[in-house]
Every structure is written in C-alpha cells, then in structure tokens.
Design a binder for these strands. Structure first.
Length: 370
RNA sequence: GUGGCUGUAGUCAAGCGGUUAAGACAAUGGAUUGUGAUUCCAUCAUGCGCGGGUUCAAAUCCCGUCAGCCACC
C-alpha cells in the first residue's frame, strides 16, 4: 500500500501556481519545494545539522553514483541511503538517466537498457529499467525516478522522438518492476522542444498513472525563453492532482517562473555548485564574492538575510575564504545559498496561500538580476 | 680585487640570430541549471637590467655598465 500522497492546499487565481503537501514514509514536504542535491550522501560542503537549521525538507541522491559507490551490498547492510547517511527525512533519487546522457563516457543504449562506464574505474556496467528500480529500492528512496532517455533539448525531432518513445517503454517497465509500493515512482516527460512530442509524452505517461510527474530534458541546451515556454506548456498537460517536478532547474528566476507555470518541485546544483565559486544569491540578485571590490566590503552578503553567515560574516571575509580555496568558504556560501533558496520557496508558499503570489512573482522577476 | 655564472610580466620560467616573446602561478573579468565543478573560458610584456655596436634582421652575437649569486685572493 502506498504511503505516498499529494494534497493540493491552495491554487493561485492569476497564475497556475499551487500550494501543496507531499506525504512520504519519512515525513511531509510542503510544496513548492526546492530539493538540495546530495549526490554522494551529503549536500556538498554542508552537513545534516546545517540542512536542519536551514529547514531543508528533502534531499536528492543519485542512483548512478550510489550504484558505483558504495554499491548495493553496503547500502543493503546499512539500511539503505537513510541508514548509511543518518538522514531520517525524505529523499528522492534520480535514476541516472541524466548522468548516463551527460557524462562523456562511452555508453550503449539499447532497448534492453544502457551499458555505461564507471567514472571510478571505467568498468562496463549495465542498467535495465528493472535493475535500476531494484537498486533505487535498495537505496530506499521515498521518491524514485524512472530510468529515462535524456537527449539534448536541441536534438533533431527524430532523435527526440525516439528517445521519448523509449522513455515511455522504459517507464512502463520501471512501473512493473516496482516491488515496494510504500514509496513513490515518478514518470518523466521527454520530448525536447517540440510541442507535439511533449503533448504525446505527457499523455502516454499519464495513462501509466504515476503518483507524480517530472518534466525532464530541460536545462540541457535550450534558451531561457524556450525553457520557460516548455515548462509552462508541459506543466499544463499534466494531471492537476499529481505533483509536478521540473528536473535540474534552476536559477531563482527559473524557479519563480516555473511555479507560476504550476510546477511543485525542483532540484538544482546551482546554489551549492555556484557557492563554491563564490557566487551568492539574494532577493536582490547575485553577489560575486570573488570580485576584487568585495575585498574591503564589511557588509554581509545580504543585510536582510537571517542566516548565520549573514549575521556574523562580511563579504570581505567570504571573499578572502573563497580566494584562498578554504572549505569553510564553500560551506558558508553554500549555507547562505541553500538558506536563500529555502526562504524563496517559503515565501512563494506563503504568497500563494495569501493569494498574493502573482504580484510577488512579478515584483521578484522584474526587480532583480537573475 | 680577480675569475665565472645569471639578469625575460607581480612570481617561476621557455626561448640560444628570422613572422605578432611559449607555458605555469598570481591578478582581473566571465561562465556554470536531474554535481565526473578545488571546474571551464577570456584578458594580462610594442618589449627581454641599462647604454652602445654588428646585422637585411638581436631577448638571442660583441663592447661597456649596473645588480645578484658562486669561487679564489
């Protein structure tokens, strides 16, 4: 019996934005939600105490990486990902479809599955939709993702169509392979930047009746305008009562635009990845801490921010840490950015509930550089 | 004092007669969207210690000079 469900709590009148709640084995998640990426078992540069003080509701794990290390045996022994990493809140696992597409390994995709190379020792490994789901169940993921075939969004139509069709066949096989029905398995819509393909994909997956749907294949080469258009276009095609997850996106503006389009869930490496390069995000836009002007700037990243980094440390100090490649600098900026993303989502939820999201989002999108 | 070696960007350094003086680090910008990100890209010496000379052509050869290092008195 599934212990996963989605409740719609409010709907914005002027946009497609929704306020909701996901229920999982490991707890509730308020949506819209941003999910921090924790590929190897930690959100890079942060630890779980940091995540808890920030208010992170759910983190991502990566099937591809966890399959290669530590692998199934250790995960099984340790009680899955939750047990291994001492995290008792929800997790979502990406299937590895994207990694297999994005990593420059030689890989062979056939109807049976995908043969790929380990980034650790280059050994040949294999995922079928069935073995992939079996492994995600070993991980113990609260929300699993189907193994999909991801192609650049700029692919020609026939390439995008073939990838999409195979994604559908694999989605069906993934669903049939699922044994632990307490957890959720989401389908992934493909179709690159072709409206008819997106429509066909949303329809085909809807018929398989997944408890949630992801919009995949974006943020992989298309323009900002195309991304916004296809997010909006695709979200509208998905069942109203199911959560919608825009994979791999994005910048603060991307998130707010996607929420306006009716998306409920996001994940992205931006807040933590950019943090390590000294890029901090605020409601007023980016602060590029590497820049020389900040060497003597005694103000915090954002005076209005309540995070401990902004309460205690100056841009000048963070500039120093980042320039010196100090891990503490990575942590402090990662902390701030994750805090900011969490507060941005919190703000969106509050504005949707209050019925003021349309004007808030308009203000946000026009007032700050992305 | 004598002999030798060395002086090229902020630093280290290639070049040893022939088009616009490698490269690395630093510096200064920029990029980054389902983490192979301590990554990637761009810019950065009208000038080779200084002054002469030889040559069609000199960072490269010659003379002088200054500085540093080493050895010997």
């Amino acid at each position: 019996m599934s212990r996963f469900s989605f409740e719609l709590l409010a709907k914005d009148q002027q946009t497609e934005a929704r306020r909701g709640k996901l229920n999982t084995v490991h707890g509730e998640i308020q949506t819209p939600v941003f999910m921090s990426v924790g590929t190897f078992g930690s959100v890079r540069a942060l630890d779980h105490v940091d995540l808890e003080t920030i208010g992170v509701q759910i983190i991502l794990g990566n099937t591809y990486h966890l399959y290669l290390r530590p692998g199934a045996d250790i995960l099984r022994e340790r009680g899955g990902y939750h047990g291994l990493i001492h995290w008792n809140a929800p997790i979502l696992t990406d299937s590895g479809g994207f990694q297999i597409f994005s990593l420059p390994h030689q890989r062979v995709v056939s109807e049976q599955g995908v043969e790929f190379r380990s980034y650790i020792d280059q050994a040949a490994r294999f995922f079928s939709p069935e073995s992939n789901i079996a492994f995600q169940e070993t991980i113990g993921s609260d929300i699993m993702m189907v193994l999909d075939v991801c192609v650049p969004s700029t692919s020609p139509r026939d390439v995008a169509a073939k990838a999409m069709e195979r994604t559908h066949r694999w989605a069906k096989r993934c669903k049939q392979a699922q044994k632990n029905h307490a957890n959720a398995l989401f389908g992934i819509v493909q179709g690159a930047i072709f409206e008819d393909l997106r429509k066909e994909s949303a329809q085909a997956l809807s018929e398989l009746d997944f408890p949630g749907y992801a919009i995949g294949g974006l943020a992989v080469g298309e323009t900002d305008e195309e991304r916004e258009h296809f997010t909006k276009y695709t979200a509208k095609l998905l069942p109203v009562s199911k959560p919608r997850y825009l994979m791999g996106v994005g910048t603060p503006h991307d998130l707010v635009r996607a929420i306006r389009a009716g998306v409920d869930m996001f994940d992205c490496i931006i807040p933590t990845n950019h943090a390590r390069q000294g890029v901090a995000y605020t409601f007023q836009g980016k602060v590029k801490l590497r820049r020389a002007v900040f060497a003597t700037d005694e103000t915090p990243i954002d005076t209005a921010c309540g995070c401990f980094v902004c309460r205690r440390y100056s841009r000048a100090y963070l500039h120093q840490l980042i320039k010196c490649d100090e891990p503490t600098g990575w942590r402090l900026v990662s902390y701030h950015n994750t805090w900011f993303y969490e507060r941005l989502m919190e703000r969106c939820r509050a504005e949707i509930s209050a019925g003021t999201f349309a004007s808030f989002s308009q203000w946000f999108l026009s007032s700050a550089e992305d």
